[in-house]
Design a protein around this nucleic acid. Sequence first.
DNA 1: TTGAAAGCGCTAACAC
DNA 2: GTGTTAGCGCTTTCAA
Lengths: 391, 391
Amino acid sequence: MAEKVTIMDVARAAGVSRQTVSNTLNSPQVVREETRRHVLEVIQRLGYRANQAARQMRTGRSRLIAIRIDPGGDGISGSVLDTFLHGLTESAARAGYRILLYTAADDRSEIATFEDLLGSYEPDAFVLTATHHDDLRTSWLLERRLPFVAFGRPWSDLPGARHSWVDVDGAAGTAAATRHLLAAGHRRIGFLGWPPGSGVGDDRRAGWARTLAEHGLPADGLSRAVEDGVESGARAARDLLAAGGEVTALVCASDSLALGALNVADALASETGHLTGRPAPGTPLPTTASETTPQTGPETTPQTGPETTPQTGPETASGMPGAVSPGRRPVAVIGFDDTPVARAVGLTSVRQPLGEAAAACVALLTRALGSAGPPVEHVLLEPSLTLRRSA
Amino acid sequence: MAEKVTIMDVARAAGVSRQTVSNTLNSPQVVREETRRHVLEVIQRLGYRANQAARQMRTGRSRLIAIRIDPGGDGISGSVLDTFLHGLTESAARAGYRILLYTAADDRSEIATFEDLLGSYEPDAFVLTATHHDDLRTSWLLERRLPFVAFGRPWSDLPGARHSWVDVDGAAGTAAATRHLLAAGHRRIGFLGWPPGSGVGDDRRAGWARTLAEHGLPADGLSRAVEDGVESGARAARDLLAAGGEVTALVCASDSLALGALNVADALASETGHLTGRPAPGTPLPTTASETTPQTGPETTPQTGPETTPQTGPETASGMPGAVSPGRRPVAVIGFDDTPVARAVGLTSVRQPLGEAAAACVALLTRALGSAGPPVEHVLLEPSLTLRRSA
DNA sequence: TTGAAAGCGCTAACAC
DNA sequence: GTGTTAGCGCTTTCAA
């Protein structure tokens, strides 16, 4: 049992009343400078901390932010939420909040947990992840005017979808990836993504398509939509490369898809004797120093040089339509999320600024909790490209 | 604002006094069956939930369990804590507890956080991860008789290290991996691990060494100790395979090391035209159904057949001492932690039962919190082998 | 500026 | 078996 230090102990030791101690902490401007300093010193000396439960009873604020934790370990991208969670815990602590965890299988059970939590621990706010079309959670929270922020845009224009959110601009990420490949001389750049309908997936595809269009390059037939996964990524890559489009580079919606694509690229390279961006297995990996994009200033996408002066590129590849063309140049691959897998296999990948996203969530929340009428605010963050051997 | 339902509302609606409602929830045996049922029904109808802060003020229990969240995303094994955390949240919820997160850079700052938390949110217990030699945290908590459980053994015999813990038997994991390789016919099985001194690493090495000894096989010179990492794993594997020990299989202390080793194995295979357990890049991956070890009964290690009847093995490899021997058979590799990376590249790996470990932590904690004198208890769980292409 | 009083919602004592 | 009383530690009136 840790000996408890109450506000009364501090008051006695400082020779003031309880309220003066309370004021020192909650309304410093009301206390004389000298008194304030003295009280603070005593607080420090006794190691006093305001009891949260008592404070909560009086103020109605728990200084708790609740968030769901997903199974995570299941997929390659599992580490994304993990990293976000770490950042959230850190940012929240800085703002005087703690993170409370809960689990839920689906929207309905998550709402049931909201009710449970609101009645018991009374979290001041929620952070929602994995937002989707017709998200029941956002409308439920909105109806009750409960403070929350979503990490992820509302993928719907319904009135029940007007709320604060923080997101990473996926389209900007795939656009940067595409620009990087263009600058490297590639002209036939394919895309491996998910079936239409998922906001996130559509967004990532759009960035690629938009960038090709901006450069007057056609995108028809250069894209595949499949379920996420290494194997489906490999299948899609094989299909796309065999389709006669003479694709020399692939932008992928996930590291899982990209890993599958990379396997295919390696197979082609070893069949034809060409090296891909990936070294022969067994060669030492590059130093980590070269793995990260230098970040100078607000522009987070790497400087790849003027796009009007592409490096020597693969545009002269002699394709054999309808079949994997032997003799082609290496196929470049870029993934999304910059997961540990990407780092492990040397996959260039779009990195989400997860720490910043978490900090933005906390900033939006504290602002909303401070003011009376929670304003609806949005933060869209730019991802960056982590350059590795694969592209 | 959610309308608040207090115990008084329930009492009024049920036509009883406050205390009868409280008793119904906290001391059901004291209330008449009929009254109890009626009160419960009203509680249900009104959606009443006992306010945690008020309850905490009275009882001194927060029903909160605190745990540190690590950066995680940094390493390949980052997903391990994530999965454990999910299990912990789930198990804790079942027992009526919630998980509170905090971050800390080292032992000292973690202890500072203990003090902060204990003074404010008053968590009922802590779960410690990543225990190590001379762990300041455990002695600090022990001195103050604060309830906690460590996920990980105390790697020290000091008196300050006598506490409840839950751990996974790493030695049993590497032993199972080694037995699996022996059953597959391998006789020269190497080990890639970390420098001595880390309890976890020593433990994993011991399982391998012990198993070789049990089979009358020598272990001398068949092991390497390096920092964790893909590249260092590759280097160590190259070194070990070139050392003339005619090693045909490698057990590794982590998936990172194993991934490096796998790259080297692949290089050897493609140099010599042999296939490793890993397919040529581009070939479809096996179905997930075949990826998981069938689990029948308490024995979690896979049935690999009687070890006295090994399959055709690589024991006749014609080694060229001092250099990588061309013409050798495939080199099998087994990792540790069964991370997403292992799944992605088809690496056989030792899987920790993280959900069970989390459940055990909660069980130990609730037991300790229930009884007056927290008994020191230990739970050592058996890992299993997730079979994939690499071995 | 500082001190006194009230009460947030709950449960552990005790009296009925 | 049920009701009354008290108080956990804090902040927010209000009075000095």
